[in-house]
Nucleic acid binder design. Structure first.
Lengths: 184, 184
DNA sequence: TTTTGACATGTCAGAGTTGGAATGTCGGCG
DNA sequence: CGCCGACATTCCAACTCTGACATGTCAAAA
């Protein structure tokens, strides 16, 4: 009964918040900053969502207001029940994520463009991927990799991003070639 | 005024439908079948969405009812304006898609599990990726690759999937090792 | 002939997401 | 002292997406 109602699939925002608060208590404002920095590439969230969810999670007993500060600041802390839910989510089998991909969707309809235009699109994809790859390398250089467990996970995620962007670029370049081959 | 109102970012469902109808006219029912087969891994859609969108697109002048058939069947065809919009979407620079990834979100909070549990999660990821890779290879074998431009694009998309799953598996196995290293 | 299954469309409630606006407080700098 | 910028919360309108429900027609097999 107490396990937050609308179950199962999405709503990972909840778990993102539980995960952040499991490290240490924080206010909505603090959480926002963390969503804007470390989590921005993994799970973006807006103010309205964060504050709304704080309310729901508190009402559901997964969080509690641990302290009140200066400007109406409310510092939220995870409860034991919240920790349980976090663990449950972390250990449950992740459902195959059927992701939507507008990049691939465009690829599906590339035949409605001229070969030149289609090639240009794919080259653009390659360059975008390369650009993001560079951006991630930049991040890698600028983050001070302490030994804290936090940044261990961050490193894993970053590596995922690097590999993903490399793959995207390689695929796009391969696709350009392929398009050239079949055109003849 | 006629360019469908709520612009810009998402709503690629619209363009998926325009893309499908650009090949040949079809009913909502026909479209559903194509969303369930070829497009299911790229852009899943439900009945309610498809029929709803058919109405909106028709009202917006991007589609028209070309013919009516037996069981209330309405066959929709793309209009010139619709073709324009499709081309516009295909050639416009795709915005960097900031995707949400619940897989990575979990990775971020892996430190709230025991090393054994965390490793199990990553191994599971590797196996899921391997499974999906196999499934795609299965698809590759079973599709008859004619020369029609349709399946050319399909092949590009399929290859993307294969490379993506391979990357995911490799990354997960790497992450397991990495976790083992830092634990010591 | 009856019944089943494929064809075919439509509506709805609820959750999630976005983006913006409105409001107010405190600390420190000039 | 007065003001600005950072801190901090709350509410809202609009849209998308999901999943279920409701309804009806036609063709062919049993």
């Amino acid at each position: 009964m107490s396990t937050v109602e609308g179950r199962v699939d999405g709503m990972s925002l909840r778990h993102a918040m539980l995960g952040l608060l499991a490290d240490r208590p924080a206010s909505g404002y603090d959480l926002m900053k963390r969503f804007e920095t470390s989590l921005s590439n993994v799970w973006p969230a807006t103010q309205s969502q964060v504050y709304g969810e704080l309310g729901k999670l508190t009402k559901a007993g997964l969080l509690e207001v641990a302290a009140e500060g200066p400007r109406g600041r409310k510092e939220y802390a995870i409860t034991d029940e919240g920790r349980e839910e976090l663990r449950r989510w972390l250990t449950e089998a992740a459902p195959d994520p059927v992701r939507r991909s507008d990049v691939l969707l465009r690829v599906f309809f590339l035949n409605h463009l001229t070969p030149v235009e289609a090639t240009a699109y794919l080259m653009g994809e390659a360059e975008r991927a390369a650009g993001q790859h560079q951006a991630l390398e930049e991040v890698e250089r600028n983050v001070d990799w302490g030994d804290d467990p936090l940044s261990v996970n961050g490193r894993l995620a970053l590596e995922y991003g690097l590999r993903f962007m490399a793959m995207r670029e390689e695929w796009a370049r391969w696709a350009v070639e392929e398009l050239g081959r079949t055109r003849r």
